[in-house]
Design a protein around this nucleic acid. Sequence first.
DNA 1: TATCATTTGTTCGTATGTATC
DNA 2: CGATACATACGAACAAATGAT
Lengths: 265, 265
Amino acid sequence: MPAQQRIQRPAPMYMQVAREVAREIESGTYKPGDVLPSEAQMVDAFGVGKATVRQAVAELRAMGLVDVRQGKGSIVRGPALQGHPMDRGIYRRSARSGPRWEVPQPPEVEEPSISRVVLDGTTAALLDQADQDALSVERLLRDPDTDVRTAHRTLIPLSVAAEVPALADAPDAPTAALFEHLAAAGHTLTWAEHVSARIPLPDERATLRLPDASPLLITHRVTYGDQRRPLLCEELRAPAAGVRLVFPVQAAKAPANKPARAKSA
Amino acid sequence: MPAQQRIQRPAPMYMQVAREVAREIESGTYKPGDVLPSEAQMVDAFGVGKATVRQAVAELRAMGLVDVRQGKGSIVRGPALQGHPMDRGIYRRSARSGPRWEVPQPPEVEEPSISRVVLDGTTAALLDQADQDALSVERLLRDPDTDVRTAHRTLIPLSVAAEVPALADAPDAPTAALFEHLAAAGHTLTWAEHVSARIPLPDERATLRLPDASPLLITHRVTYGDQRRPLLCEELRAPAAGVRLVFPVQAAKAPANKPARAKSA
DNA sequence: TATCATTTGTTCGTATGTATC
DNA sequence: CGATACATACGAACAAATGAT
């Protein structure tokens, strides 16, 4: 720790402006839906150049506090979209009653599109099949209550599709049906959910109608059969702002083995 | 004017520049660790103004493709940090063997700091206690293998701490010990994990050493007692780039709308 | 140790295009 | 149509960090 830590240089002016406006938003001076003063007004009010104001507004946008629209202005976002997850959960739970499965899933916007794809790095690692192609079923889902759009992709390795013809015949069946077919083929199913997040790509922002400053929550639900063989992978991409993923968890009875640091090359 | 719909305006110049450089990165012209041409060189190479080049570089940074450092240049990131989750998982699993619990947790960097806090919107909703204060234990954790830093916060409502004095005596005990105390007090424990993500605040970027374009993965693990009463909330904030959260999932036997309770032996 | 060239960061100015009302 | 506001683009200057001399 150098002594330089003590002294603090004044923050850049654009950051000071951004913080000042952010404070006014949080204190209620500007309420959700309000339009902030225009850039020209801020130039006069703060006595700084236009580039400084623009960068300050860019910071506010990156913080997720405002939505900027050309020709209109900078609109203050509601707290629900300011990064705090609302009470809208996407529940990730599967339930089984006898031979039937229940897997919650919102209705889809368009009909699913089926294609044959080469697995990318992440999904190849999860499915443990570097060279194998897979069937891909892509869906665009939409929750009618909240208008939240999510992208869902089911990946069925070709080897699994060959073994279980029911999957190859109707890969676009509901997830519960896929589980039932795998169970009927003699597999004992277990799952793992892999959750990550990243900045959305431009086209993802468009199709999912993502606002600025909203990361993309990505979960891969891998279905395993016996000997922990991966059979299926579902990828769900959801906006992180205003949405939570909820996992009901049951503690395991026994610590079993410890796969904590296993490195599979 | 309807014909105008068909034509598409050319993308802004800064976006064209960004895409061109991104293509060169992905095609291998610039490899991870390489330093991109300086801004001045790009101004000459592309024949655009400096502001245009700067915004293009800002785009590349937002895409997570490069790391820009003053006085040095723009360094191409490795694919591991380009938004694709690596094979480093944070395992979220609790195991019980008899009266003992096992909860995985990396070592902490500093000693935990204990304070009394007022619950914010999210945690108040999860703990179902709008007016209640809570004990807060904050830890900064660090995985020695990967140098990944995570922030961990345990919230114990004051009412729960009053009922279970062992929690109030040592709120900074390991999570497994907290579970054991709650179980010893007669509670049957269940959990739910709430996962979200958002853009990190500036100070979070500093303490967690977050690179640009890395969202923050946030999970709230709520511990419930009987009648689904929330007893405890743990908040974990982890960098989303290069990290996955892994949840082992077991399908419930019956589609109960009531929480499925673990059978006590 | 100190200096210097290079590179990015910040800030100002000006002009024009485009969307909204 | 016109006024307003943001988006894009140019130029210029100085500050701050970096690495090598």
